[in-house]
Simulated scan of single mutants.
Amino acid sequence: MASAPVGTLIGALPRNGPGKTDIIVETIFLALDFVSVGLRLWSRHLQRMRLQINDILIIAALTILTARYAIEVSLVLECGLGLHAEEVAEIGGPDMVILFRKLVFVIDLMWLTLVTLIKTSILHFYLVIFRQTVFVRVVYLVLGLVIAFYIAAFFSDVFFCIPPEKSWLPDTPGHCGDSSTIYIALASTDLTIDIIVILLPMPILWGLQLPTPRKVALTFVFGLGFIIIAITSVRIRFFSNLDPLDITYTFSEIALLSSLVPLLGIINACLPVLAPAFKRIFNSSLLSSTVKKSDNTGSSSNKFHRLNEPELPLVNMNSPYNRHNASDAAGHISVTTDWEVHSIQASDTHINDIEMNK
């Protein structure tokens, strides 16, 4: 393998600590994202289910995330992300700093699209498994908030400078907004939406009649986003440290944290769907058959009915036995799968796991 030419920014990589850290961490988590999405698709296959809208949104997010990863690697290797702008200009020339600003402009827009796709996927998943009328209305309200924020943030980024090319060509006639103020405002709003999305299902999960360990497991599955919230909170702090005159170095403090948000977001969105794959791999039912569709239209009457679309088929409708000879064969029937009885009340949802062995 030929060594990098002396005088290029690739040759400066050994002393570019922030750049190397960025590439290593993003590569590891991107690999985990591919594993998570692969397990998600396998789980759907095990459930004999077609891909849902939330699955398609996650696949789209992973595709965009991969493209963003390639651009960010180019930022490090070709444009000197992590090095001081003075060194980048000295080694690569002034045009290299301009290219850096262009690529940052692109990955910012890709980041907004990514986090919106992930949040939309999570919210759609909520709509699929939780059917309480009030909850559904709240989810649609939050979904509208997510889309409205995306539109506002996208155009705020695009037209941060007028004309837009002034973002990467500072000498272009025109004007730009206050970068720190706008970035902090957008990041704070995004953080608030993240908190709402993560907290939405918690009251329902803890209202289920399940053993505490299973509730804790479900809380972890649905609540991994709290780590993302912590990262976003730290990320906001660094926006005030951005220096337009040393953008290649000061942006490196934000680049990794920004990348971790969608990288972890995809894992967070996939975890609640992975129970069938985990059960097949680890032969564990801790996360299996715990969260299913629940229909609650607010009726005041108590009803018992079989849950719609269970994770695994519970009955073989093509059984060779009919009701005339079922009693004769009763001694040979062994039911080993989990059954669930769903009790619907006006104000609460109860799910009881009943294991029958005959």
Rank of each mutant, 00 (worst) to 15 (best):
M1K: 10
I10H: 07
L13M: 13
L13K: 00
R40V: 02
L46R: 12
Q47L: 02
R48Y: 09
I53K: 13
R68P: 01
E86Y: 06
I91P: 00
F105L: 06
V106Y: 07
W111M: 03
L114T: 04
T120E: 03
H124Q: 09
F125W: 04
I129G: 00
T133Y: 07
V138R: 14
V139P: 00
A148H: 03
S156P: 02
F159T: 12
C161H: 04
C161D: 12
I162P: 02
L169F: 08
D171Q: 05
D178E: 12
D178A: 08
A185R: 06
A187C: 09
L191K: 01
D194P: 01
L199I: 07
L210G: 04
T212A: 09
V221R: 12
I231D: 01
F238A: 08
F239L: 10
I247A: 01
F251T: 06
A255G: 00
A269W: 05
R280E: 15
I281T: 10
I281C: 09
S288W: 15
G298S: 10
S299E: 15
K303T: 15
L307H: 05
N308I: 14
E311H: 08
L312C: 06
M317L: 14
R323C: 03
H324T: 08
W339I: 13
Q345G: 14
I351G: 08
